[in-house]
């Protein structure tokens, strides 16, 4: 353990991430177990199509690219890419250009979607407080990440997060938390991480759960699904307590 293990550091970079991960995992289990009916995209497309047609694909494809970029950037150690002969400069150039494009697409998408939420009456009245909190967390996280990256690169001192944030995250995921590793990262990235923690902790309780329903099984399943009305097969959940069938 390093000398940076002040109580605050341990709290922010060890306790908070683990709490967020725990809430994320347990929360999803809980939600799936007890609220399958609420597990949905809750699309608002029936109200409005013109803005959604641009905003939604922009955001979703953007954020998917951002996600895969994070997987590579955070989970693949710098030494591995170096062993493949990819220099830091090359890596950064590619990551920055592709990542910025994806990030900008996602931010533009969110902007269009928020504008749509605010200006289209029917969409606005279908927006819950939960949605608003989700939008704030999502937008803040996105902007912090994108903003810090842009600022670092444009100011000529790009930060190599693969020396700070990535090893820290891997230390957390490998259950050998090392708070000191992230302290070298600029404030923007640290705030980005904290915002992401808040977002992950909030995730299972928001409409974001639909991410885990990505219907990849559709590619392989037969077109028509037959199911028997055998209650053991046709009801995918047990009756809630207090809602059992009256006999």
């Amino acid at each position: 353990m390093s000398g940076n293990d002040s109580a605050v550091n341990v709290l922010l970079w060890v306790a908070v991430p683990y709490a967020a991960i725990a809430v994320f995992v347990v929360g999803h289990y809980w939600r799936y177990r007890f609220d399958k009916f609420g597990w949905t995209t809750r699309s608002s497309q029936v109200y409005e199509r013109r803005l959604l047609r641009w905003g939604s694909p922009l955001f979703h494809f953007g954020i998917l690219a951002v996600f895969f970029g994070h997987v590579v950037g955070l989970l693949v150690p710098e030494s591995w890419t170096a062993a493949l002969g990819v220099s830091e400069g090359m890596y950064h150039a590619v990551a920055f250009s592709v990542g910025t494009l994806a990030g900008l697409a996602a931010v533009a998408g969110v902007a269009i979607l928020v504008y749509r939420r605010r200006t289209v009456g029917s969409v606005f009245s279908a927006t819950t407080r939960n949605d608003k909190a989700m939008y704030v967390l999502l937008a803040v996280t996105l902007l912090l990440g994108l903003g810090t990256t842009l600022y670092g690169t444009l100011s000529g001192h790009p930060h190599d997060y693969r020396q700070t944030v990535s090893p820290w995250l891997r230390s957390v995921l490998l259950l050998r938390p090392h708070a000191g590793l992230i302290l070298g990262a600029p404030l923007g990235f640290r705030l980005h991480v904290l915002a992401a923690c808040a977002l992950f902790a909030y995730w299972p309780f928001s409409r974001l759960v639909h991410v885990f329903s990505a219907p990849v099984g559709y590619l392989t399943r037969p077109y028509i699904v037959y199911r028997s009305r055998d209650p053991r097969l046709s009801s995918s959940r047990a009756a809630r307590r207090g809602w059992e069938k009256a006999s």
């Binding site: 219907p215 077109y223 199911r227 009305r229």
Partner: peptide
């Protein structure tokens, strides 16, 4: 049912 990505729409085999 064929269009449903989630496979949530089904045809009951009995009726």
């Amino acid at each position: 049912a064929a269009s449903c990505p989630s496979g949530a729409i089904y045809k009951r085999s009995e009726d």
